[in-house]
């Protein structure tokens, strides 16, 4: 039985919050650079250039990539042979608070959705999973709400055609439009239950944006490629002002489901798709 202390978790989460918010994911930055090279619309090219420049200023000056430093979504994959000395969830929450303060990130969290009140640094959405082994993998995904507000779930009939599913996903992208800061990474969860499909859609954002390589199921890989091609023909473009670069990637995750249903969830990320991981 390996022992991991609450302090180690607290420190790791704190560092991950800062790293995720100021150092744009390498795969995302590379995808933005590829989008810049492919873009023909002049204004779109200027905006993409500003986005790339913004990432380098943020990294160099240790500034948040975006002022919306998000609601931190923390994925904790806990090996079943690990014993936590202390309180895991409270260590994660303390890590978030200290990282957000130390990194000059934004206090965007209100304690109660109806009462609102004074914004603070305290709190996170925590997804805990028990896995084999004796490690603890921590991932912090700070999710901005310009794009989170555009999330949707739809329960299809099990007999639905693939075109119906594609049209739904494309409609979500169209509705997100300029508000959600394109070029997007489109996270899609298919299967499970309504809540589990939503979780998968969020988790899909953690996968590298170099899509097809990481998608082992052929029909899903094809769906990802077709969706990306069709979305990039919508002419939404950076800031919604036209151009090819509407999405950098479409990442689809699937799971078993019931004979009577076909849940589909879409979780859009803005171009500042931020996450960082560490294994303890």
């Amino acid at each position: 039985m390996r022992i991991i202390s609450a302090n180690q978790i607290n420190d790791a989460v704190s560092d991950l919050c800062i790293r995720a918010n100021i150092d744009l994911r390498k795969d995302v930055l590379q995808a933005l650079k590829r989008a810049y090279l492919k873009e023909k619309n002049r204004r779109a090219k200027r905006i993409l250039n500003a986005i790339i420049k913004n990432a380098s200023i943020a990294k160099r000056e240790k500034l948040a990539i975006c002022q919306d430093t998000g609601l931190p979504v923390v994925f904790a994959e806990l090996g079943q042979d690990v014993r936590i000395k202390g309180d895991l969830k409270s260590a994660i929450r303390k890590g978030v608070e200290s990282g957000y303060k130390k990194g000059h990130l934004r206090n965007s969290i209100v304690d109660n959705p109806l009462l609102r009140g004074r914004p603070s640094y305290r709190g996170a959405v925590i997804h805990l999973d028990l896995v084999k082994g004796n490690n603890l993998k921590l991932t912090v995904l700070p999710k901005g709400f310009g794009c989170e507000n555009k999330s949707q779930v739809k329960m299809f009939n099990p007999t639905a055609r693939i075109e119906e599913i594609k049209n739904f996903i494309i409609d979500v992208v169209k509705t997100a439009g300029a508000d959600a800061c394109p070029p997007f990474v489109v996270g899609v969860g298919i299967g499970g239950t309504a809540d589990y499909a939503s979780f998968l859609a969020k988790k899909a954002l953690l996968r590298s944006v170099r899509v097809s390589k990481y998608q082992s199921i052929k029909v899903v890989a094809k769906l990802e490629q077709e969706l990306l091609r069709e979305i990039n023909q919508l002419n939404i473009g950076p800031m919604g002002l036209g151009g090819r670069a509407t999405a950098l990637a479409v990442n689809v995750e699937t799971y078993l489901t019931h004979i009577a249903g076909l849940p589909v969830a879409v979780n859009i990320s803005c171009h500042a798709l931020r996450s960082a991981s560490r294994v303890l």
């Binding site: 905006i47 420049k53 913004n54 948040a64 975006c66 004074r118 914004p119 800061c181 500042a272």
Partner: peptide
């Protein structure tokens, strides 16, 4: 007007002075 969306670090370069005017309790708002 539109400002460059998702470019908060870049935009900070164009801000020279900041002063709190009202609603301090709203923090960043």
């Amino acid at each position: 007007f539109l400002a460059y969306a998702g470019c908060g670090a870049l935009i900070s370069k164009f801000i020279q002075r900041v002063r709190l005017i009202a609603y301090k309790d709203l923090g960043p708002e």
